[in-house]
Nucleic acid binder design. Sequence first.
DNA 1: CTTGGAAAGTCAACAACACTGACATAAAGT
DNA 2: ACTTTATGTCAGTGTTGTTGACTTTCCAAG
Lengths: 166, 166
Amino acid sequence: MADSSTQGGETLLFLTDEQLRKGIEAMFFAYRGFTADPDRILDKHGYGRAHHRAIHFINREPGLTVTTLLSVLGVTKQSLNRVLRTLIDDGLVESRVGRKDKRARHLHLTPTGEALERELSGAQRERMRGAYRTAGPQAVAGFRQVLEAMMDPDMRRHYQMLKDDS
Amino acid sequence: MADSSTQGGETLLFLTDEQLRKGIEAMFFAYRGFTADPDRILDKHGYGRAHHRAIHFINREPGLTVTTLLSVLGVTKQSLNRVLRTLIDDGLVESRVGRKDKRARHLHLTPTGEALERELSGAQRERMRGAYRTAGPQAVAGFRQVLEAMMDPDMRRHYQMLKDDS
DNA sequence: CTTGGAAAGTCAACAACACTGACATAAAGT
DNA sequence: ACTTTATGTCAGTGTTGTTGACTTTCCAAG
């Protein structure tokens, strides 16, 4: 099982099961840290992780439609609707009828929504910034490369859509 | 990539909000890919992610006690107990009364449990192996360094307990 | 030897967040 | 005119997490 593989002329990696498991557990434990800070903030406001995800992607791409958000998040419309409903009712998200296509609803954050978004992403960026600083610039590049390779192709498309600064 | 310079011997990273957000989304999308394969397998067997986590850590450290597992997973005993109950009733996990301390229950996988563990970890290792190969050996080191730095200290202890091979 | 507390298990209630299925409406496209 | 798309909603269900209360077992300290 702890095999090394020859990939026709490509880089050879000798990966033992132990090394792979270490990577698997790193994902598990790191993801917990990754969500810990936002979870605390969300709890204060009476929201959950699902609200965070919606807010994040509405902020990333203001005016995106419900269908687009649905495909990014990978959940059912019933599930998203429950979350979106509360955010709209609470005045964090605005749903505007499309001008060209009047069926579509374009989602925007209100000033209140933007304030929560900043609070959430600020905490998460601090965690990310700290990890980056500890690990160093070389590590950051590798981190992103491995994560990108780990995504399903559909999700990678959404990811690569984001501008990069690199 | 990440701009860097040296100041007082320490490497400084100049990280824009866009770069940090890219890292945040990488975590989000990658974690989805990371759990996708096991989720499909678990579904076939009528289990969920919580069962997977329990099986994983019992396999990693056979004979660990319920309390230890509780602290690794970071859930309440009521929540774990529900999951553990089904795994024991289904004959995947064995709960042995401690010899020294008869209150403690030491958890082991049965052959059936080990079979499911191999199925699950095999799929997850394949995904990890593929990502590693795509990204290259340099990237793998960075990946692990950033993830480790992202963990909460308590979780990092559990992570570092694992032997490494590297 | 008694007692305090730790380890484990269980019951009940509840909440967040996902799912399926069914159905309704409006508007766009053919 | 007919079909498809986008959205929203109602109802029901399942997994996984939470609190709180309570019991049994049993180690260990007084």
